[in-house]
Amino acid sequence: MSIQKGTLEIKNLSKSFIVDGTPLQVLSNINLKFPSGSFISIVGSSGCGKTTLLRIMLGLETRYEGDALLDGERIEGPGANRGIVFQDHRLLPWLTVGENVAFGLDKLDRKAKKLIVDEHLKLVGLSGFESAYPAQLSGGMAQRVAIARALANKPEILLLDEPLGALDALTRMHMQKELERLWLLEKITMVMVTHDVDEAIYLSDIVVIMSSRPGIIKKIIKIPFARPRDRASSEFMQVKAEILKEFHLGTEYPFAYAI
């Protein structure tokens, strides 16, 4: 039986960095399997190695023990089948919005490029902005362009590294809705690193909780509720309390917003 596209599997993965001559283990014996088309969040306090894990899936970190497999193949470097949205939008300031979205489409001809750019700018609600420069955009708009750029390549899996971390609270909630809409529309696997528990519960089918030094997986929680989810519902609160308990915050402060 062939594996469905966009299936991500991590087997016995460990990773250490050399800091001042001594090895520092950042990830220890990680095992995960994400079904194709699901939305996964990885939450944990800073320094727990969640970003490193994402960079391994992306292919920017290639030295690790164990296996990171996409559709059954070991990830050895970046590839067009994986898209990435960084926390900083990372739009190239010397390219227009349109050129930024087309950054990964260099091999296509002008017409095909324009078609895809238009389609994706429309998708993220920024039609008509293709000739603006990144410096003219607000943080939320820039992040939408970054998402359009990642999706324009038609990846099987979209990696999101705290994509909304730099936005203000209101824009953030709005963008969470947008992400959900895009995920439902594109039907691809999305893996998001975040430290916002609400965000993780609102968006994910699966929440992976990591703890630090060395980074290990503490718990995996499946969230089966129907969408769109209500942040004030009791089931939402219950899951939230369950997650916060893992960070020793659950009992005393059941309504803590973030870690």
Binding site: L58, G59, L60, G77, P78, G79, A80, I84, F86, D88, R90, L92, F103, G104, D106, N153
Partner: peptide, 19 residues
């Protein structure tokens, strides 16, 4: 940040230099 981005989008050699 930009060098990583170029790596993700597979920009190499002359293309990397000019773009």
């Amino acid at each position: 940040r930009y060098r990583e981005l170029a790596q993700v989008f597979d920009y190499k050699g002359f293309r990397y230099l000019t773009k």
